[in-house]
């Protein structure tokens, strides 16, 4: 049943991608029942919110800044340019007040990490979604 849903999801994504070239999906572990709006997602990725509404620790993962998904996510969800984000994090890093999310190379790495860890949250190109992760929002 679940598999079917995912398949359906992929089909729909496949259709919409014709219209919106770089739609991104925010993904978590399938067991994560949290409902997150874009403001909560943004707060997690900016280090301001550290747990899911269910209570579990929320650990964001970023992709390399050269990836298209990163640019899309930064501008659509975080509302910041790459250099604004870098300056935001340098304020926190060099004052001991925060650490930017871990960075991985691509969609596949995000998926493989998240499918193995319920605390993680990441973003990928919506067309790359597989059944091992759960989409909680699309932008």
């Amino acid at each position: 049943m679940k598999f079917l849903k995912t398949k359906l999801c992929i089909t729909i994504l496949g259709l919409t991608s014709v219209f919106a070239q770089a739609e991104i999906a925010v993904v978590v572990h399938p067991s994560n029942a949290s409902a997150l709006d874009s403001s909560a997602i943004s707060r997690i990725f900016l280090g301001k919110l550290k747990s899911f509404d269910g209570g579990g620790q929320a650990v964001p993962i970023n992709q390399e800044s050269s990836m298209a998904a990163t640019d899309e996510f930064n501008s659509k969800v975080l509302n910041k340019s790459g250099s604004q984000l870098k300056s935001y994090w340098s304020k926190l890093v060099f004052t001991g007040k925060g650490t930017p999310p871990k960075v991985v190379a691509n969609d596949a790495e995000v998926i493989s990490l998240i499918s193995a860890n319920p605390n993680l949250i990441g973003y990928i190109d919506a067309t790359a979604v597989t059944g091992t992760v759960k989409v909680i929002a699309k932008f």
Binding site: S87, S90, K91, F94, T95
Partner: peptide
């Protein structure tokens, strides 16, 4: 750092402002 000013904590990190 003493947080006297808004930018006290990263006075030296020119990139941050």
């Amino acid at each position: 750092r003493i947080p006297f000013y808004r930018y006290s904590d990263f006075l030296d990190v020119g990139y941050a402002y």
